[in-house]
Nucleic acid binder design. Structure first.
Lengths: 333, 333
DNA sequence: ATGAAAGCGCTAACAG
DNA sequence: CTGTTAGCGCTTTCAT
């Protein structure tokens, strides 16, 4: 920068202002051009570390995630956050904790030492969490999680809306005896999807309980086993809503073994819309999509808002889960 | 830090050395303890931006990737790099380019402005690339890619070894008529897997050409269609090696439709070992795993080595692809 | 409209 | 063994 100033025949102060368009209207237009030209000539690149020391802004956002790699959704969330950050001139500094609270505290500390401007705290499989003490006054937005008291901004998928969406595909086709295959794992998503399904089926005048099967985990294998049980019952459902795509994959196998054609004999809908599964199954699986990309974007936008205005009231947002419609639904036979 | 020094009754220089264990043996043990205690007392956290300005080291590594989100492998690579970096006190600054060279140059520039200590350049689906000019003298390691001239350190999967590994599962069980269903997309992986398969089948005294099917893309649907063609041929293979797990999923469907039981009537092996597919298929699919986690780790270790010794000779590494053995292989009937 | 100078928080060279 | 001082590269008063 000193070189640039010298080359343009001005002081470093002037050079800085010319390059950053700061200092109001005190820089003459041709001075600014001269400085710009000199900078381009010399291939000048600002040192943001020095700038950060002075301005106390690093243009970096910390992303701390539960388990960045394991879940394929995480990638989309990161991507959304990344894109929004980059558009605003920010970069993402990533830390993965294995879900361990101590590690999370440590990660937050490591980011704060690096003077990040704010933190995105992502908990895979949206849960109710407390903002860690280590956060202190660092601006923070929760991703796929929320606080019990609404003290921090957060964004979660609208699980209820998504469930109603895929169920509407079924009821719209004329189904009322709609089964549900789900997991016993106590995650937020399970509870909402299950409860919403219960309500909706009851509204159709059908008792949901005989149409419910619960298994230990949300795996393909257990989805298969659960479906075998459900489809063997006397008044078997004409359609099944699966907790997620992996379980749906098992339901497909069970249907095939029982000689039930999808969708002619059995309609199937699901949740997650995983790229590797839902479109790859045959026939393509209708599934409610988790809007992770958009959630990532939203979180960054909200974080930037809070950086501008630390007094702004926290916002709790529910992101819609659009239905990806494919070929797994037909009229009941 | 000034506060800590004052509280301990020493100068900031002494405090700095006491906390960082620098300056050789010039700090007395009880002085150091006194400083440490004061720091802990005050909850002192170093400002790494100021430190970075002084030391010209930021303890941050730039990770620039082709398409971080889209491919599920990327997550594992990032995770590996992340873990190794963190163990050494480094954090990852991520930038995703959509594979666009101009964006890549820009990303490298953005990272350099932030004074990262080095860059990991990841190209999904390993390719031969040139190190971008923008890299300048920034230390850099290529991930899942390599240069034509070996001028940069790089790590790629050992595709040939992995292919031989899964083929050995088949030949070991007694198969010689081994088909191959692959894509026409011109990626490095396709060429190596195809060529290795050709050689190996020829070594078994079988002409590979009638056992080969190529389709436009490596999708489940086209894998299905390709398998229908292959399995309808007069001298149909007793086993199939698929380009990847997604295609294998299609092969499973084709076999089911043709009334061929896997593995009794047809053995199947594949490549990628995708978590969502290979163990979820029925029966479990034997597949060569892409060692992305280990590649990520290796790249960071290598980068740190180059930071220590910028004159070190570049290394090209091939990471083994272990075979994940499941239930899709049996003796030919 | 511009320049001089101070200082962000830290480390490293130089004195003692 | 410890303190003083200079300075990393930038921004931002303050004075002109």
């Amino acid at each position: 920068m000193a070189d640039v100033a010298r080359a343009a025949g001005v002081s470093t102060a002037t050079a800085s202002m010319a390059l950053n368009d700061t200092g109001g209207r005190r820089i003459g237009p041709e001075t600014r051009e001269r400085v710009r030209a000199a900078a381009a000539e010399l291939g000048y690149r600002p040192n943001t570390v020095a700038r950060g020391l002075r301005t106390r802004r690093t243009q970096m956002i910390g992303f701390v995630g539960d388990d960045v790699a394991t879940t394929p959704f995480a990638g989309q969330m990161i991507r959304g956050a990344h894109d929004a950050a980059r558009e605003a001139g920010f970069l993402l500094l990533m830390v993965d904790t294995s879900g361990d609270p101590a590690e999370t505290e440590e990660a937050i500390g490591a980011l704060q030492e690096r003077q990040i401007d704010g933190i995105l705290l992502a908990t895979m499989y949206h849960q109710v969490v407390a903002v860690p003490d280590a956060m202190g006054s660092t601006p923070c937005v929760l991703l796929d999680a929320r606080t019990a008291d609404g003290s921090a901004s957060s964004v979660v998928p609208d699980e209820r809306g998504g469930t109603l969406g895929v169920l509407a595909e079924l009821t719209g086709a004329g189904h009322v005896r709609i089964g549900h295959v789900t997991t016993r794992e106590q995650v937020q998503a399970r509870a909402v999807r299950l409860e919403t399904w219960r309500e909706r089926v009851a509204e159709c005048g059908v008792d949901p309980e005989p149409l419910l099967v619960e298994v230990e985990h949300a795996t393909t294998q257990l989805g298969y086993e659960g479906a075998l049980v459900l489809l063997a019952r006397p008044d078997r459902p004409t359609a099944v809503f699966c907790f997620n795509d992996r379980m749906a994959m098992g339901v497909y196998r069970a249907a095939a073994e029982l000689g039930l054609a999808i969708p002619a004999d059995l309609s199937v809908v699901s949740y997650d819309d995983q790229e590797l599964i839902a479109p790859a199954l045959h026939p393509g699986l209708t599934s409610a999509a988790l809007p992770h990309y958009d959630m990532g974007r939203w979180a960054v936008v909200e974080l930037l808002r809070r950086l501008d205005d630390p007094e702004a009231a926290p916002v709790q947002h529910r992101m819609p889960c659009p239905v990806a419609r494919r070929q797994s639904v037909a009229k009941p036979r």
